[in-house]
Amino acid sequence: MKAFASWSGGKDCMLALYRFLKDSENTVECLVNMCDTDAVHSRSHGIDKNWIRKQAKQMEIEVIQPVSDFAGYEKVFKHQISILKERNVEAGIFGDIYLKEHKVWIERVCSEMQIQALFPLWGENTEDLLKEFIGEGFKTILVAIRNDVLDNSWLGQVIDTRFLADIKKLDGVDPCAENGEYHSFVFDGPLFSTALDFTTGATITSGNHNFLHLKQND
């Protein structure tokens, strides 16, 4: 099956992609990373879109970065799917785990575009998913937090077994942050040829979110 991967740069879309590619008959045509109208940042995680391109390069997968505001998101997303259908793409891969409303939206959009929506992680225990992600050798860093849920000490943390133990101690916080408690950026793992090299910079606050700036090492 030939598919595109809906891409944020974080752990869930990475694990979904990884599982999909374990079937040797599957191929990924490209990553689709929706970007803000400022043309600089990925919509979901606030990451500079150049870092998404670096991920794609390490995986040797093409990345497409359509630009959209919130109101025009569905129209732009559908337009991109229509282009990919001309390249014989049959399905989209999504990293959703249990948010039913978002899954329903994806399924409707994909149905209207006559492609299959795939959810490799759907309905699974989020602690188990995080253990799998860590165990497979992926490396990821927290690049955004909801500051009404987590304090700034969580920004920049690497997701590992210690992180999992600590996050489990917090009431009302999902280990995989399915409710948006945090967002992550994958910088190494079994799909990468080499790890991405970076340093962390300033913290930027926007509403109830804090974002960590990543800088390329010289």
Rank of each mutant, 00 (worst) to 15 (best):
K2S: 13
F4G: 09
F4T: 09
S6P: 00
S6E: 11
W7F: 05
S8L: 04
G9K: 14
D12P: 01
D12R: 05
R19S: 05
L21R: 07
L21I: 04
E29L: 08
E29R: 14
C30H: 07
C30V: 13
V32C: 09
T37S: 12
A39M: 12
V40W: 00
H41P: 06
S42R: 06
I47E: 00
D48Y: 05
N50G: 15
K54M: 14
Q55A: 05
A56D: 13
Q58L: 07
M59F: 10
E60W: 00
I61V: 08
E62L: 12
V63F: 08
V63Y: 11
V67K: 07
D69Q: 05
F70V: 08
G72Q: 14
Y73T: 01
V76P: 04
V76N: 13
V76I: 14
K78R: 14
E86M: 12
R87D: 08
E90I: 04
G92Q: 11
I93K: 12
D96N: 11
I97M: 10
Y98E: 05
E101C: 05
V104I: 13
W105M: 09
I106Q: 09
R108Q: 12
S111D: 11
E112S: 08
Q114N: 15
I115Q: 03
F119V: 13
L121V: 00
G123I: 01
G123W: 01
L130D: 02
K131L: 09
E132A: 02
F133Y: 12
G135N: 13
T140F: 00
I141N: 03
V143K: 06
A144D: 01
A144Q: 09
R146D: 15
R146A: 06
V149L: 10
D151K: 12
D151A: 03
N152D: 15
N152I: 11
N152M: 12
G156T: 01
V158A: 08
A165T: 15
D166R: 00
I167C: 00
K168Y: 00
K169F: 01
K169H: 06
V173H: 08
P175D: 12
N179G: 15
S184F: 04
V186A: 07
F192N: 02
S193K: 14
T194R: 09
A195S: 15
A195C: 06
L196E: 09
F198L: 05
T199A: 13
T200G: 02
T203E: 14
T203H: 11
T205Q: 13
S206L: 06
N208H: 10
N208V: 06
L212R: 04
L214G: 10
L214R: 12
N217Y: 00
D218F: 05
D218I: 02
